[in-house]
Amino acid sequence: MIPRHLVIGVAVMLAVVLSMGIYLRHMRRRAGEIQAAAADARPVAPPASGPTENVTLYVADDAAGILRAQAAKIPLPGGRQQRAEELLRALLRIYQQPDSPHPLAAAADIRSIYLVAPGAAVIDLNAAFADEHRSGILDEQLTVNSLVETLAVNIPGVSRVRILVEGRTRDTLAGHADLSEFFDVSAVAQAQ
């Protein structure tokens, strides 16, 4: 005769094993879903929609070594932060054209823009933006000035801008332009 406490013990252990198996199966399915989502290169956010607005983009011109103001009509969403992101993505698209006056990598992107303390904006670039950027004072400074000027002119109230790469502080964009501090918008405007 098997003792009763032993039967109960074995039954409990079988129940635990069964529930662990079910949990494991569930976790494997979740992991598969996460992996599939990570491999999906399609944009997470839908393309910007909203009324088309007139904006001024400050486009770098390598040959002349200056920024040129360029009027554009782009659809802008309602939120201030989303507007800022769409604005800089529109600027980026110009730089990624085959005949760009200031070529940037095809994989370069703006991850996010944070409008934080009063007057402060933080631009978060993806790694490809910085890693594949050409090295040189002129090249790098034109990129920085273009981003800062375009943002400051079209998003009222921005007086200082910080640039991060993949959410982290980076010493320089590509060996020269210092990214470790906030850019003073008025100083950048005077530098043009």
Binding site: D62, A63, G65, R134, G136, I137, L138, D139, Q141, R160, H176, D178, E181, F182, F183, D184, A187, V188, A191
Partner: peptide, 19 residues
């Protein structure tokens, strides 16, 4: 002193002071 393959001639830069 720096050097670049972009553009022609030379550029003279002063500091763009941060905030």
């Amino acid at each position: 002193l720096h050097a670049s393959s972009q553009g022609t001639g030379a550029r003279a830069y002063t500091a763009l002071l941060p905030v």
